[in-house]
Design a protein around this nucleic acid. Sequence first.
DNA 1: GCGGAATTGTTGCGAACAACAACCTATACC
DNA 2: GGTATAGGTTGTTGTTCGCAACAATTCCGC
Lengths: 387, 387
Amino acid sequence: MGETTTGATEGRRRNLARLLRLVHVDGPLSRASLTEATGLNRSTIADLVGELARDGLVVERAPDPSRRVGRPSPLVVASADVVAVAVNPEVDAVTIGAVALDRGIRARERIEVDHLVTSEEVSELVADTVRRWRRSMLRGCQVVGVGLAVPGLVRAADGLVRNAPHLLWRDTPLRELVESATSLPATVGNDASLGALAEHLFGAARGVDDVVYLNGGASGIGGGVIVHGMPVTGAGGYAGEFGQNRPGIASEGDRRVEHGVLEDEVSRARLLRAVGLEHADEPTLAEALATSDDPSAADEVARQRRILSTALANAVNVLNPSVVILGGFLATLASPDLPGLSAEVAAQAMGASAEGLDIRVASLGEDRLLMGAAESVFAALIADPAV
Amino acid sequence: MGETTTGATEGRRRNLARLLRLVHVDGPLSRASLTEATGLNRSTIADLVGELARDGLVVERAPDPSRRVGRPSPLVVASADVVAVAVNPEVDAVTIGAVALDRGIRARERIEVDHLVTSEEVSELVADTVRRWRRSMLRGCQVVGVGLAVPGLVRAADGLVRNAPHLLWRDTPLRELVESATSLPATVGNDASLGALAEHLFGAARGVDDVVYLNGGASGIGGGVIVHGMPVTGAGGYAGEFGQNRPGIASEGDRRVEHGVLEDEVSRARLLRAVGLEHADEPTLAEALATSDDPSAADEVARQRRILSTALANAVNVLNPSVVILGGFLATLASPDLPGLSAEVAAQAMGASAEGLDIRVASLGEDRLLMGAAESVFAALIADPAV
DNA sequence: GCGGAATTGTTGCGAACAACAACCTATACC
DNA sequence: GGTATAGGTTGTTGTTCGCAACAATTCCGC
């Protein structure tokens, strides 16, 4: 055996990874379907699944009561006892979840805070919660790591939060803090990028390899890009910041902010103001927009849609995605007339690029960021399941 | 041996591919350095190199007269007898080249045309040229395929030219035509995308994994994006069309075209007009711009630079590349003050993304498109060197 | 209820691959 | 010319995965 291999050779690791990814992403699969999906031999599948089962990453369940001929094939499912802790610190609360490898959410807690949390507080909060859960809901579970979805710029290389404006974090070594507080490996990512990853794996862009995702939050517009089925991080890990782009505004009358960026023009605050609300959750805002008979509200929606459609057209020209996913208030803005928005985008993008384009609304709810953060933890495990 | 394997197992294919890619991209390498670069055993390297040599893909040369102690290691070089034919049809001429696996250009011909060529004419031209070359310059060579760099939109899946406006080609099945005329496998790509690939592999962005490339031609602005070291094609293969984006224009006085796109505002024709030229090659234009004392020429340059910098900032926000490469007249526009342009871009992009950014001028000359087109042919060969 | 067909898990075997160790060879420096 | 250094060569070995034969389980027709 080679000095570079730890017991499994490169090829075998790849095969183990393929299997684990399949059962993780596509849910319970029979050994037979794994054989078909991978092209590997039955005996090889048996061997590989056996190894994954020995490592506790998958379990074999009784076969489905199928109504097909032949010997029933046992189902291979990802273990519910292998979990990642997912964390989303926000200005009003810190949400912590435990997501299992079978995509189930084993635990979930939203901890309201009355002040802006520091990264140290978050680290302690996570450590405490994990300690508590390990004695209760996560008894017997293997916790493989902590994934953090941060509303701000994150340097991919070392998990340094460069700037999270609303949390007032600057150059905070979050990964290091969490790792030393919990003694678990941690990954840190931008919330929108992780949302994109979740939508790509499990949501509205499931199975789609080229995706542009834009999420409209209270504080701005974030985004993520998937190319060839892989998240685009960019050189520093800061990719996807559509909200900071200078918008192409066709008619000057549509401009509200001199030298503004996209999220200055297309903003939740402006929508709220247009219907005379102070604070509102997303359904309330949607309802208010739908029922308002104030023409200025309709104008504001139309204006924002025009600017958004141009921004989307630009992204489509450059990245030619199959699917564009809109989340948050951008979904609210788009969903009353998705075909109309698609047409607007198509009119401004190059014909060919727009041709196969599908604009969709995000389908994952609250759990999106937890799923994405957990996924970023599982990524390493799946890439190399050999313990 | 498995039915899915053609004589080499998956892992071996990967190793063969790694070796071939190394010697192809990084030039002549000693067996010793291959051993170090791959981490494989000496004996394994010897075996793999032997197989590549038997297949005629590499040859071993006498060792470099090194001044180091120890037994000299023979150099492994990619074969100069394995060639790809590269074709670039343009409005005034069709350029055909033969690029070898050692990156040498074995043959090159620019065939002037006095009318717009059709795709059928190009196919015949290529077939004739290849036939002729095979009896002369390419005697004894193995021609592995034809790569075409087309100024227009190309569907990656089947090499259909959707729209090449200046050639007046629409929905032309170019790959099929060339393949049946030459009996060689053909690949078809957008010229700018292939230029980006060439710059990434051999030019100003060599070794850089995250690249945005913009090329300014007489007829517009094309581009290409490299993410994680791989060209971004998009779902249909149309990615990279920066020129069709709606520009973010800060001051309305800079706008020249109502509802225009980037290439309407930032254009070679406008630069030529500003210095009172009709036609000029790139050095002439650069010279004219540098020596002009007409303030309106300087204004036009400054205006185009402003708009370009905003477009680049937008791209940087979304893709966070390490390097932006500018070619054609965009290089002319940028090169007098590259640091100034960088500063303009940094001022408009997010700080973190701009921080590690390097804006460079394209370094490959005329051969760029031929290299890129040949690369697209070699890609398949390198990915699976098993003949 | 029973036998045949279809499908899939299981087992033992063999081919391919690559690492390893020991041995051999070629060059540079003294 | 001797020694140290670096590299090629050869045979052996462990790992992986396909293959083929056999066993297990279900459905279906009678």
